[in-house]
Every structure is written in C-alpha cells, then in structure tokens.
Design a binder for these strands. Structure first.
Length: 116
DNA sequence: CGGCTGACGACCT
DNA sequence: GAGGTCGCCAGCC
C-alpha cells in the first residue's frame, strides 16, 4: 500500500496535540552544517503526506526561537519562499554554518549536506 | 459558518 | 514531461 493510501485509510493520526513539539525535537537533532527537508521530517514522524503540516508547524514558531528552522529546505534543496525576507535570513543563518546558498536560493551540494 | 491559502510533496492526467 | 489535484488538511479571513 502506498504511503498515500496508508495515510488516507490509516487508523493512526500523526498530526495532533504535540505534533509541533515532535517537529521541534526532531529538528534539534539536525546538526549545524546540515540541512533536512519538510518531507524527510514528515516521513520520520510517520508519513511524508504531512510535509505540509511540518511547514505549518515551522510557520507557527515564534520569531526568536531556539529551533533551527533555517536547516529545513524543500525537497529540491531550495530555501523557503525564495526572494522573501525569510529566505534571506535563512541564507544568512546557513552560510554562518558553512552551508553555501546560491543566489537562486538553492543549497549548493544539497545532497551531501542533507541530513537523514 | 464557508471559503481560501499555504515554510510541501506524491500521485494522476 | 509538465501542469493539476489532494492529503490526516489546519488556520485565517
């Protein structure tokens, strides 16, 4: 059964109370200098179909947070909403960790930085 | 209370 | 191969 159908028919709900805390916890295991994706986080939490909800969880984070949200990029290695102020902040934070971000908003050598 | 949007990604035309 | 669609939708007009 595909993850899709599993999610559709599945008896167990992944999203719910404490979901954002699980995202937080998991994200904190990603070391500086590495990046991960929404889909990978979602998959680690149970199903890639909730990738979007990982996005929601991060969007809900307070401005000043100890959660390394900047280490999350999309499945193609692009930073959040290229061109936005948030994307620029993210690029600055990543470069501070020796992760090169191109002008197009994509992490250079994404595959090797990717943390699983 | 209904409709729309969205820090995404996989499946289906 | 390139759009369109929907997911466990969840929050915000």
């Amino acid at each position: 059964m595909s993850p899709y159908e599993e999610a559709r028919h599945g008896p167990h709900r992944i999203v719910g109370p404490g979901f954002h805390a699980r995202v937080h916890e998991l994200l904190c295991t990603v070391p500086a200098g590495a990046v991960t994706t929404y889909g990978d986080l979602a998959g680690a939490l149970g199903s890639r179909t909730v990738a979007r909800h990982v996005g929601h969880a991060l969007a809900a984070l307070p401005e000043r947070s100890d959660v390394p949200w900047h280490r999350v990029v999309d499945g193609a290695g692009f930073v959040t909403r290229p061109g936005s102020a948030a994307a620029r902040r993210q690029a600055v934070l990543l470069r501070r960790e020796q992760v090169v971000v191109g002008r197009d908003g994509r992490v250079a050598d994404f595959a090797s930085h990717r943390f699983v």
